[in-house]
Amino acid sequence: MSALAVEDLHVWFDLPGGRELHAVQGIDLALEPGERLGLVGESGCGKTTAILAMMGLLPPSASVAGRVLLAGGDILAGGDRTMRPHRWTDIAMVFQGAMNAFDPVRTVGDQIAEPLERAGLAAGRAARTRTAELLELVGISGERQDRYPHEFSGGMRQRAAIAMALACEPKVLLADEPTTALDVMVQAQILELLVRLTDELGLAMVLVTHDLPLVSQACTHAAVMYAGRIAETGTTRELHHAPLHPYTRMLFEATPDLRGTDAVRSIPGAPPRLDEPTVGCPFQPRCDRAFGPCATTRPPRRTTEPGHLTHCHLEGGA
C-alpha cells in the first residue's frame, strides 16, 4: 500500500472580483515507503499549493477537491477535521522560506518543541532534550536552542525548520525547497541526511525543488509539473535519459552544468495564466515539438513503462 497517494487533486484560489485561479488542476501521485519523489516545475506552477493541500494547510480563500490517501485512508474528505489528527504526526512539512515558519519573538528551541508538546510526546525537560537531539541531527549545536530566529543565519533556520518537521517522527515528509537557502555543502549534508532517514526509517518524501540535478542525485522518482498539472512522472533515470514530454527535456537543457560545456537553452515564453481555462496542451505555445492536435485537443495520459506516465500527444518520446 502506498505511504501517500494523491488522486485527482484540485485547488482553486478566490481572486478579487469574483474570479478564480485554478492553481492545481488534477494531479495524481503515489509514493511507497522509502521512496523519494522530486516534484519539479516552473515557478508558480502549483508545487507549494499541491503539498499545502496534502497537509490541509490552505487558507480560507482556497477550495479543494480530490483525495489524499495516507496508508490507504482518505484524510482530505473531512477537511481540517480529518486532517488534523495526522498533521505533523503522520505527515509533516518543511516550509518554503526558512524564516517563514518561525515566530520572531520565541526561541527556536521553544518552537521546535511545540509540535512535540501538542502531540503529547514530550514536555518540559524531556522536550528540551529531544529538541537538542533534533538540532544536532540537522547539524546545529543543541545549546543554540535558546537563541532567537534572527540570531541564526538563513541556512541555520532552514535546518531548524527541518528539525521541527521531523520532531514527531512522521511517516511522510513533504519538503518544499528545503535547501534553496543553503550552500551546496550544507545542501549535500541535508540531502545525505534525508536520504538516510528515508532509507532507515522508511520515510516517504516529496522533495519540491526547481533544481533538476538535485532531484537526479537525491530522488528515486520525479514528477514534472506544468501549469497546475503533471507533465510527466517516472524514475529519475527515465526522465533524464528518455523523457516523454518535451517540457522535461527542455528543463534539462536549460539547466546549467558546472562541468558541462553545452550552452544552456532557456525555454522561451511564459507559462499560461491560471485564472483562465486553457485549450489543448498548456505547453503548446512554448513547445518545440508542437504539432496538429496540440493547440486544440487536451493531450491524453499515456504510459510506456509501468509507472512512467506523460500527458503529451507525441508518441515515442520527446
Binding site: 487558507p59 480560507p60 480530490g66 515566530d103
Partner: peptide, 26 residues
C-alpha cells in the same frame, strides 16, 4: 497577539468542493 500563535500550527479553514466535471476539465 503573535506570541500566542504559531501560524503553521493553526487551524485552517479551506473549503472542499466536488470534483469538476471531467469533460469540462479535460
Amino acid at each position: 497577539n503573535p506570541r500566542l500563535k504559531v501560524s503553521h500550527l493553526l487551524r485552517r479553514h479551506f473549503r472542499m468542493r466536488p470534483l469538476p466535471d471531467k469533460d469540462a476539465a479535460r
